[in-house]
Design a protein around this nucleic acid. Structure first.
Lengths: 251, 251
DNA sequence: AACCTTATTATACGATCGTCCAACAAGCAA
DNA sequence: TTGCTTGTTGGACGATCGTATAATAAGGTT
């Protein structure tokens, strides 16, 4: 419902508002916007309106990045007036936080779809999961701009909380796929962290400067890392992390 | 050349901000404000002034991130008036681009120092290079905030250019260390890309949400990746990237 | 001295930021 | 119809943004 009412510090500054002008120009010149697309200023179901604001925010973030995500451009994109945003969200920051969760879910679903399309073989599903980051819609400069905007706000607890949830879910899904491939329980967590980091780093640089390597090369490197992780399961010769006490020689 | 003048450059212009004294009536109220701690901003050598502005920008970026890096806070941090920034730089964007190069150099030097401290053994130097990212001054939230601010501006060619140069240099240094460890020439480029991506991803997540894993774990994972890369050099059984034709079975 | 160059300040300007608010409008209950 | 609730609008407000510019200060040259 309201979710508002801060009645904060600033007094209305005494003097009454300007009587303002009549809105006579409105309400008779246009019957209303037809369905579909923008310009819907009809009354909407609260959940529908909330979602349309979130989606508009995602589009603006993708197009203009963090600096462009301000109230008025988002309102224009959603086809509503600026004031409506503060009616549905406690502030622009809350709207962006909600958008983080929404975009995070979309990414998660895109990865799940890639896994589902890979069939039943555990190894193929794992490969599909990690290499999906190097193809559309994940490997996209606009998505990176969106993501960077979220990162730039992780100073605020509200956003950091969602970041942790999204990444925890990503690693959780990855751990499940790794377990299906026979990775030992004790290795699951760190293996998932390493693969996540590699994929994240490759995805980041692939979007930031696409000339330094190709998406195919990124796929190959991720695949190699998977092979290395899986070879440990078969008792092969694989490099082990040195024990903590052995690691002091390099300082 | 009184001695008081010399230290004013590095002075953050703390307290005595402007005693009201607005200069609306120029030249009659007060010719100068000589005494007191307010001696900031004498004339400086152009290069010195430029550098002090760059350093002030780096401090503001580290403290407040991308959204805080605007003309007036930077000017306050540098202890000069806002207008001076446009005297030395073509705009705020040019100042931030220059700061990107400067911070990139500092990071590069910090990594080089870690390598130099590791001694003469090639393997130890390589380890020092990659694990330095997980210790101060690299593994630092403020540095991440700075870096994210740069990333958020890579849409502008001026910044993207700097990003490419900085990352190319990072990979170049890494390739040299890998070559010293005997990595084959044909594998150098992709190996460096993979290690850079892993380190970047670990560094990013370590700074963003430090609770998901520890710096020691990050070091161990990077070390394991190095071991995997180096084991190939000895003709051991190491996972290979599958050929491009073999990768289409998952649809 | 007078003159010139330029570093530096302080402010002005228009644009845009987030938030708040009073008036309008749409739906629903009586 | 009349009333009531609430989604929605368009703008006001103060703060801050980047840039531009006239006035002043400082150093160097002749």
């Amino acid at each position: 419902m309201d979710t508002r009412r801060k009645k904060t510090l600033s007094q209305p500054a005494s003097g009454g508002q300007r009587p303002a002008l009549s809105r006579s120009s409105r309400g008779d010149d246009r019957p209303d916007a037809p369905a579909g697309g923008r310009g819907l200023s009809k009354r909407a179901e609260p959940d529908v309106r909330r979602q349309s604001l979130i989606e508009a925010t995602a589009r603006v973030l993708a197009r203009d990045g963090a600096t462009g995500a301000s109230v008025r451009p988002i309102a224009v994109e959603a086809g509503v007036s600026p004031g409506l945003i503060n009616h549905y969200f406690a502030g622009i920051e809350a709207l962006i936080a909600a958008t983080y969760s929404s975009v995070g879910d979309q990414v998660s679903h895109a990865l799940a779809a890639a896994v589902a399309a890979a069939g039943d073989d555990a190894r193929a599903r794992l490969t599909a999961y990690v290499t999906a980051s190097f193809a559309p819609p994940i490997a996209d400069r606009a998505l990176l701009a969106t993501w960077i905007a979220f990162w730039s706000l992780t100073g605020k607890p509200q956003i950091a909380e969602r970041h942790d949830a999204i990444y925890a879910r990503y690693r959780e899904d990855l751990e499940a796929l790794l377990a299906d491939c026979g990775i030992a329980q004790t290795e699951l967590r760190l293996t998932a962290i390493a693969i996540t980091a590699l994929v994240d780093g490759l995805w980041l640089e692939l979007c930031l400067s696409p000339d330094s390597f190709t998406a195919d090369e990124a796929r190959g490197l991720a695949e190699r890392q998977l092979g290395s992780a899986l070879s440990c399961r078969e008792g092969r010769d694989c490099p082990q992390e040195p024990a903590d006490e052995e690691r002091s020689a390099d300082a």
